[in-house]
């Protein structure tokens, strides 16, 4: 699905991503964790085709990302940025933008029904005709997630999708993403909340200073690893099959 081989990336002189290699399989739900500035957003943008990468470093469905044209890539990968400028447009129209890679002259019935379906999935029916700029931060974030879902892509990349959401909506969105990954959609998110990450993702990728510090299941979430990553002491608890963390 997404294969990264020895990826280096620099905005200016210094490499922000250093020799990243990973192989994300179809239907995986990957959570990227790591301190601020460790390169989570940058890594997601290189997978989304937003930042220019070297040839032979990022492969989507076994094809070099360079070999995709713009619309084709947008039909395969949907991306939600960490923050997005919002503008006065109705929620329905904002979500309809997710259909852009498919729309020729005008949106079809199918485009409209996809929009309505994802509006429902994110409980946005009631505000479908409100202006995006008049919504709360969490509502806006859900609109952007809805737009990404409307792309009907096999790969979903979301940069901190739950950052602005209240507890219930955060859990709902994560559960939704988990359900989608169960249907074979590959999901990669950046996320700060370790409890959420370990509970919903089936792979955690720890990023530190532009390198993959460790990746794997909940077994890598040890207090030593977390201490190395964040320079903070946390206690790891296990109850039933759940792992959770509390700062000391």
């Amino acid at each position: 699905m997404i294969e990264i081989k020895n990826l280096d990336f620099a905005y200016k002189a210094d490499n922000v991503l250093k020799n990243i290699s990973t192989d994300i399989k179809k239907g995986e739900f990957v959570g990227i964790v790591g301190p601020n500035g460790s390169g989570k957003s940058t890594l997601i943008k290189t997978m989304a085709g937003i930042l220019p990468v070297h040839k032979y470093s990022v492969f989507i469905n076994e094809r070099d990302i360079h070999s995709y044209n713009h619309n084709e890539l947008a039909r395969n990968i949907a991306y939600v940025p960490q923050s997005e400028q919002f503008y006065p447009v109705k929620v329905f129209d904002a979500v309809l933008m997710g259909r852009k890679p498919y729309i020729g002259w005008a949106p079809t019935k199918k485009d409209h029904s996809v929009v309505i379906r994802v509006l429902k999935m994110l409980e946005l029916e009631d505000i479908a005709l409100s202006f995006l700029n008049e919504l709360s931060g969490g509502q806006q974030q859900r609109v952007f997630i809805a737009r990404a879902l409307a792309q009907e892509a096999g790969i979903l990349l979301m940069d901190e999708p739950t950052a602005n959401l209240d507890l219930r909506h955060a859990l709902d969105v994560l559960q939704l993403l988990k359900n989608l990954s169960d249907t074979g959609i590959t999901v990669v998110i950046a996320i700060h909340d370790l409890n959420f990450a370990v509970r919903y993702c089936n792979r955690i990728m720890m990023l530190n200073n532009g390198t993959i510090f460790s990746q794997g299941g909940s077994e890598i979430m040890t207090s030593e690893n977390i201490k190395k990553l964040y320079k903070t002491n946390v206690k790891v608890f296990q109850q039933d099959s759940h792992v959770f963390f509390i700062p000391e």
Partner: peptide, 20 residues
């Protein structure tokens, strides 16, 4: 027109929606 609509959301989002 669809490209311009996408540009409202910012360059990165527009790119991810398939705008050159």
């Amino acid at each position: 027109r669809w490209n311009y609509n996408a540009l409202h959301a910012g360059d990165e989002t527009a790119k991810s929606l398939g705008v050159k």
